[in-house]
Design a protein around this nucleic acid. Structure first.
Lengths: 208, 208, 208, 208
DNA sequence: AATGAATGAGTATTCATTCAT
DNA sequence: TATGAATGAATACTCATTCAT
């Protein structure tokens, strides 16, 4: 009855995040991931189907965990505005706290050629659904304007968050691209997002 | 007077767009691009440094042309709101008119591993600068609220456009991902964008 | 009295024959053999040194059993012609009764890279010796011509049997290779073998 | 207009025969074949689909050449007995003159897992057809007995030749397998073959 | 400029075998 | 004996790029 003393699957996942962030997806070698995880190369394939499966699992698992956690936290809140703010800032905070994970999600994942296949899209859609639910609640409660297509609007919110994170990340990793531009903090970005989200989506702007 | 009877560089570029859209960047073979362009494999390398250079050139050239055209059209217009609307809808219209180009920009480019390197970022930044200029004009003219970081806000606009286009494209290419969702038109998306942009950014929302 | 309830070694051997016949030697997976035998993968290695050892053991054991059985049956017979006929038809009958075994011997064994090594050759040589003994008896008794090299002649007989069986097997497994050829039965083949073995191809043999 | 100064395809084929004979098919490395042929590894794949294709081509081409040459030589001969003798001895002589080729055909080919697929079988069948034609001519002319199934008989002849060659080859490459056995020459083997082919094993053949 | 045969660096994955339990 | 998770050696093949013509 051989007992896994340690959770090898997790070990490999952690190692993969590190290596993907360091070298990029396509330049990351499975041999290096194995060494970093202190397992044999073949062991990776006891837990994952392929290198693609590895990055897709990282993606999916992180989002699923986040969505589950969000739903729990959202439960007792009733104000849709507060809910939306919580969701958006939570996502940003997660990636701020783990820039390697952010790198993998925003940059490296796209190299895998699978990033728009059904597996990862399913979880993204789940997140988009969460956003849309909140928008709809807001409409019902009369705090969100009702003359918008929520399916489209949820995409804007997602796009805005991506844009914030990607801008922040690239300024960290490739500052030379931005010349002497004064950088901004994620705190500022969240504020701006909240303002624009708020006054963009709120009912009763001047004369509507 | 040895004028090239045909513009081979352009021939290659067109062929590349077709093949990238059909097979994806990494699965696209330079040999196939050459065949499609009816040139020898080596000829590609008389005009382009590498396969990466090929997709990056497509990217850059398209954006530069678009930015140049936009600046020309924008010249006589003074209303920043009108300007911004024109910019955003023009971008959307371009990709709507050439879905293969959209595929290459939104999906395939990301596989190249160079998509966040200085060459393509420079032109994106140029576009972002254009957006920011308009925002600043709007602030000066008092029609855009001034309590926002324009550097951050321009990113939202860009992210929103990307999100619209990617959603539209994926619904075309992978409808199965979206189940029975009722699709939306780009026309609807532009309307929603204008509404949210407008009432989000305008001065004099309720009590500010 | 810890008697194994079942003979695992034999279980594994039977499973291996099945899998080798189904997938071919090199495409046969030890994991599949283990599953088929309802033992753990490692258990195979309690009984066999390697995958090669497995197929070689099948080969060797089958021949050894056959040779032992043949010697017993041959004992009371004195006519060399009768003996030879018995030997050849017995071999053919064995494989006819177990086509999977035939597949393994005639086709799969050859993939192992060990099929001409000393272990399996030893048993083949033992069979060839048996054939040669009979030929020599025939010569002594004056019923087999004495102007032939028995070492060479025994090879012919073995080759003829192989050719019969291989032809029969391939017509079963790959009928498409033979087009519309009318197949033949092993019964016919045995008859032809007996005729040609006895008196050759020529009409009116010259004067020996 | 790049001109191949040397026939690379042939160079590769020759190198492959050498390496297959030296190391065996499965232990032969494509890198070594390339080095031996003084071409790049990739060049092999400009001429051959795979490593399997390489050995299959060697097999097929040699047999096709032999069959073509045989048909030419056979043309003016009318005596079926003479024809058959010529065919069998020609095959034996070819392999005697090129033991590496013999090694590849009799031993290494079998490791490829493709040796009974349609491509190589087709050419073997062509050779078997040649043998059968001769047998049938002999029957028509009344020199070959007509009470045999020629389809089966041709297999015996092929099997006999294989057995001669394999015995001869193994005695060269693995003499230890045969203990102190006095070896025989291919000359002796051909004689024995001719005798047994003609008149069989029996002394004083009965009355047919 | 054009050609296309030649190049060769580069690696994910398999699976027979082991060994701690 | 039995287990099965862990191991890691081993390698054919691709394809972007070059360069002699």
């Amino acid at each position: 009855m051989p007992r896994p003393v340690v959770d090898k699957k997790n070990l490999i996942l952690k190692a993969a995040i590190k290596v993907f962030a360091r070298r990029g997806f396509s330049r990351a070698r499975t041999a290096v991931i194995a060494r970093e995880a202190r397992v044999a190369e073949g062991t990776i394939y006891n837990y994952f189907k392929s290198k693609d499966d590895l990055i897709l699992t990282i993606f999916e698992q992180t989002w699923r965990d986040m969505i589950r956690a969000l739903r729990a936290v959202l439960q007792p809140i009733h104000d849709p505005i507060q809910k939306m703010t919580l969701v958006l800032t939570t996502v940003i905070d997660l990636f701020e706290s783990d820039p390697q994970l952010a790198e993998v999600f925003l940059v490296e994942l796209r190299q895998s050629g699978k990033c728009f296949s059904s597996q990862p899209m399913a979880v993204i859609l789940e997140f988009l659904d969460l956003l849309e639910e909140i928008l709809k609640e807001g409409i019902v409660q009369g705090v969100i304007r009702k003359d918008i297509n929520t399916r489209i609007a949820r995409g804007f919110l997602f796009g805005a968050v991506e844009s914030i994170l990607l801008g922040w990340l690239l300024r960290r990793t490739h500052p030379e691209l931005f010349g002497k531009e004064k950088p901004y903090t994620l705190e500022e970005a969240k504020e701006t997002l909240t303002k624009l989200f708020g006054t963009g989506f709120f009912v009763k702007p001047p004369n509507r």
